[in-house]
Amino acid sequence: MNINKQTKLIVDLDKKPQSVMKTRGKINWGKIGIYAVLIIFAIIYAGPLLMLINTSLKSLPEFMKSATSVTTKLNFDNFVDAWEKANFPRYLTNTIIYTVSATLVFIVTAVFLAFPISRGYVKGSKIILSLFLIALFLPPALIPQFQLMLRLGLYNNPIGYILLFTINPIGITILVNYIKTIPRELDEAAALDGCGYFRFVTKIIFPLIRPAIATVAVLHAIGIWNELILPTIYLTNKDYYPITRGMIVFQGVYGSNWPTLAAAVLIMIMPMLIIFLFLQRYIISGLTQGAVKG
């Protein structure tokens, strides 16, 4: 394949005199170094989260007395309190509906955008790509966007809300870049075999760029999941609220009660964490199976 040829060429150009064998000891030192760096970063990353969990299990007086002490007993009252105070199941369902449907619409439209742009199969590909690149820089246009949605009758309407999340210039850029790594010869070969455009994109390109799609979909879904400003503006009916609204209740009511707030935060991030832990195997390990090999 094209990319293999290229990369082999680079290696050939840089051929260096062979230094015979690596010693075992050197490798081990390398490993220790790797682990040292990874563990230092793990502490920076896990520390704040552990602090959150620890706090959520304490009572308020305990926290006031000593913020850092490790909790002595498992006090789940904060979780009960948080769960009772917010309508989490309903909000959670809404958030999942918004996230899944907007991501699906986005991915489907994005692939049909990114492929011909990347390949130059439509007139003005470069202009279209520049348009999307410019969109990366565009200022947030809250007010004009709101007026538009209002006139289209999409205010306080889940469909309108979902539509707001069906574009993502960053996602398009990633897909375009990724498709570039897939050799053009493939298109030619498929066409010679009598494969149509739609079938080629859905049957061959889709699976080939699965890793990029997974990455883009997750990044996109995270943005929808965490959106706080748009639901405040576009959704006024309680039945439509996403889960980020549940968080607002907590910041307002429990602003200074760190233990309960911590419990609410944990409840709120739990579903996304689980989904992520489940998906990340697919995103990252899926890559190893080899996007290039198909």
Binding site: L138, Q147, L163, T166, I167
Partner: peptide, 11 residues
């Protein structure tokens, strides 16, 4: 794209 990003930005 035109509806949600480009149009409002021109606005």
């Amino acid at each position: 794209y035109v509806l949600i990003a480009l149009g409002p930005s021109i606005g």
